[in-house]
């Protein structure tokens, strides 16, 4: 089965019913995408399938055939510089244990691609599928706004 992963064509031999998550992790060694619940409830396994966020633990490989998958390993720019969301995640000191953060960043990236200037309410809605047991929701919200350039405090700081 052929699919494009992080811009590279990959050939995978696996049962088409296998969730994308396990092919990424066990066959391609892309361990940044995490297993959390197996039933699309926690968002730790979020990747982009043709640009849309999907829960890879519950999406079979058969649905990805011929399509393009982007994982956390693939969202930095080509020269390896961090994505603006990743930078904001560092500046706002978002992660604690860090286990959910690949999924959080992938959901946030899909949100900003769809809506470059989301309101707090829109952020909450888009991110409600991603659980963070360390409870860093406030910092995630802030980091998304910093990345989107809509954080008022930050803008004031920059201006002064």
């Amino acid at each position: 089965m052929k699919l494009t992963i992080n811009g590279k064509m990959q050939e995978i031999t696996a049962d088409p019913a296998t969730p994308i998550l396990w092919a990424l992790r066990e066959q391609l060694g892309l361990n940044g995408t995490k297993f959390g619940c197996g039933i699309a409830q926690c968002g730790a396994c979020t990747v982009h399938l043709d640009g849309r966020p999907v829960r890879s633990c519950s999406t079979p490989l058969s649905q990805a055939e011929g399509k393009s998958i982007v994982t956390i390993e693939g969202i930095a720019s080509g020269d390896g510089a961090l994505n603006r969301l990743q930078q904001a995640w560092i500046s706002e000191q978002v992660p604690q244990c860090g286990y959910c953060q690949s999924g959080q960043i992938m959901s946030a990236a899909a949100l900003l691609a769809d809506n470059p200037r989301p309101s707090d309410e829109q952020i909450n809605i888009a991110m409600a599928g991603n659980i963070c047991r360390c409870g860093m929701y406030g910092r995630i919200r802030k980091a998304i706004k910093v990345a989107a350039g809509i954080d008022s405090e930050r803008q004031q700081e920059a201006a002064t």
Binding site: L49, R52, R55, S58, I125, G129
Partner: peptide
């Protein structure tokens, strides 16, 4: 917008 109707829904795609 599935996520807007049910925040926390497992329906991440399908919009």
């Amino acid at each position: 917008n599935p996520a807007a109707k049910f925040p926390g829904t497992a329906m991440a795609a399908g919009k």
